[in-house]
């Protein structure tokens, strides 16, 4: 279990009678790109919030980067990066100021922040915009920047909650190039998405339906199993049976 990036066993989160996450069990290997799929309301975000230490599970076990989600949330937080579907950088700070702030609170030294931010800004080609407010950037750039900031402190795992919502296909493609680079550098990527083409980019994917993980395998194996040639159809066959209303 220690070697897994994430490990869940019967993880459950209950709100009153409602089981948002229902006895979920899965492991994520280190360095893997793990796609976390499911219809709206299937419980993806709730599960992800538990793994990030934002929410307590009701029962079951889980460890993230080897730390327990009940007791060691603060250690988990030191070792992960997180980018939510809600845009998470400060609009009224410049690109550089956002990088300095988030780098700083994760304990990166001022010297390292300087070196890495110079590097990052030149990689992203944002030399001219570095002193611009983030609020003035187009959405696609904001997303790429938010991802870069989420992995700025070199976490073991990065959680991405629908990171490419609302951006064009070209930017999405570039975004996934960045994800691959991060994975190559050894960061485990845990990503939720609604785009089935993106699901194909993942090493393994799980599909959540009504709070449970209904399928978990590589995209190729899943397509074989459901005897179809697109992930769209796999998802459709699984999610069709969902009882929870789209919310």
């Amino acid at each position: 279990m220690e070697n897994k990036a994430i490990s869940c066993k019967n993880l459950t989160k209950q709100f009153g009678d409602f089981k948002a996450v229902d006895r979920v069990t899965f492991d994520v290997e280190q360095g893997e790109i793990f796609g976390f799929l499911g219809a709206n309301g299937a419980g993806k975000t709730t599960a992800m919030r538990i793994l990030c230490g934002l929410s307590f599970p009701t029962s079951g076990e889980a460890t993230v980067a080897g730390f327990d989600v009940y007791k060691q949330q603060e250690q988990i937080k030191k070792n992960i990066g997180y980018m939510s579907q809600k845009f998470s950088l400060y609009d009224n700070l410049t690109i550089l100021e956002n990088i300095v702030f988030y780098g700083g609170v994760y304990g990166v030294s001022r010297v390292d922040i300087k070196i890495r931010s110079d590097e990052l800004i030149s990689t992203l080609g944002l030399e001219k915009e570095a002193k611009k407010l983030v609020g003035e950037l187009p959405l696609g750039w904001k997303q790429k920047l938010a991802f870069s900031v989420a992995i700025f402190h070199r976490p073991k795992i990065v959680f991405l909650d629908e990171p490419t919502g609302g951006v064009d296909p070209v930017t999405r493609r570039q975004f996934w190039d960045m994800i691959y680079q991060a994975a190559e550098s050894g960061i485990t990527v845990f990503v939720t998405t609604h785009y089935m083409d993106e699901a194909e980019y993942c090493d393994r994917i799980s599909v959540m339906v009504d709070g449970r993980v209904e399928a978990l395998d590589s995209p190729t194996n899943l397509k074989n199993k459901f005897q179809t040639d697109t992930m769209d159809n796999v998802f459709y066959q699984l999610a069709r049976g969902a009882k929870r209303a789209d919310s």
Binding site: G53, L54, K86, F87, S88, D91, Y102, V105, Y106, G107
Partner: peptide, 14 residues
């Protein structure tokens, strides 16, 4: 409201 508090809560900021 903006959602940045969630981002703060997921950092090791005490």
């Amino acid at each position: 409201e903006i959602g940045t508090i969630e981002q703060i809560n997921v950092t090791p900021i005490q």
